[in-house]
């Protein structure tokens, strides 16, 4: 018996791969659904901060991600746009990552159309420019010099949504949906800290722990971490809304749970095998 368990401890990693694949495919194919409890915390803080903005405020959303992190960040983009637009807050958006432009557009135009919001009046997408932090610092003194036109080449000066927005200081909040560098940290360093603008955001679950310190120093007002953060936000936006649109994040959470269980099961098996081997070797001495 001991040898069987010990063999388990040296399992070929391909067995683990197969089980992981099944753990994700089966719940998705069967469309399992588990309820999400909303926690107090960084997700709620971001929601509340946006809820407290007066109508007509201007918020900058920076789409700092690409398709590889879409599963986590795109639902956030959608949920945030829904929240901002229903509260009649104007959205100025841009991307520090090249692929963020079209992803951002997808979210903004879909939500905008469903809520009857117009491009150039209620929202605009300025597009992408390389430069990360450098770019932000330039925008601190003059946005129009960095983005004379939006992503489609339309002059920004004439857009109603940009009236009164000349530099970063004219914005009420910056939200960065960030998959790495440049991303939230860049915005905190180059905009939040320098020009004293509230910075909030969403990130992949992986970078969330790294951003926690900024939450406690107040450099970040709130944070959506990974699919769970997106799920939280989706759930909060849906409260009090009749016939809410389907949530993208909620669907994946079931598969998430099962896969977590599988990994934890592996860790337990690994440890039982390890301990039993140690015990046997210890006994043989």
């Amino acid at each position: 018996m001991a040898t069987f368990i010990e063999k388990l401890g040296n399992l070929d990693r391909r067995v683990i791969f197969v089980l992981m694949a099944l753990a994700v495919i089966i719940p998705l194919a069967l469309r399992m659904n588990l309820p999400i409890p909303i926690d107090k915390g960084p997700s709620k803080n971001l929601f509340d901060a946006i809820d407290a903005l007066p109508e007509g405020s201007r918020v900058l959303i920076s789409f700092d991600y690409d398709p590889s992190t879409m599963p986590e960040l795109q639902p956030m983009a959608v949920a945030l746009s829904q929240h901002l637009m229903t509260r009649d807050i104007r959205i100025v958006s841009l991307a520090l990552w090249p692929m963020g432009v079209s992803l951002g557009n997808e979210a903004l135009s879909a939500v905008g159309d469903s809520l009857g919001k117009e491009e150039y009046v209620d929202w605009v997408n300025l597009g992408y420019k390389i430069g990360g932090g450098v770019l932000i610092v330039r925008m601190g003194s003059d946005i129009q010099s960095v983005f004379p036109t939006d992503y489609g080449g339309n002059p920004v000066d004439e857009m109603p949504v940009m009236q009164g927005v000349n530099k970063l200081g004219d914005l009420d909040m910056i939200i960065s949906l960030s998959a790495g560098d440049p991303g939230i940290e860049t915005w905190i360093m180059m905009a939040g800290d320098r020009y004293n603008i509230a910075v909030g955001g969403g990130c992949t679950a992986v970078s969330a722990p790294q951003l926690y310190p900024y939450l406690s120093t107040g450099q970040l007002i709130g944070l959506l971490g990974g699919l769970k953060g997106a799920g939280d936000y989706e759930t909060m936006v849906r409260i009090g809304v009749e016939n809410p649109p389907p949530g993208i994040a909620i669907a994946g959470m079931a598969a998430q749970s099962v896969a977590h269980l599988v990994i934890m099961l592996f860790i337990i098996i690994g440890n039982i095998a390890y301990l039993s081997e140690k015990k046997r070797k210890g006994g043989a001495k």
């Binding site: 399992l11 990693r13 683990i16 791969f17 992981m20 694949a21 994700v24 590889s68 992190t69 896969a259 599988v262 990994i263 592996f266 860790i267 098996i269 690994g270 440890n271 390890y274 301990l275």
Partner: peptide, 19 residues
């Protein structure tokens, strides 16, 4: 490529997380 990480995280956890 990015999603390969799900598999690698599992195998790394299985092998490395021993008491």
């Amino acid at each position: 490529m990015f999603s390969l990480l799900a598999f690698f995280v599992a195998s790394a956890a299985f092998r490395a997380f021993r008491a």
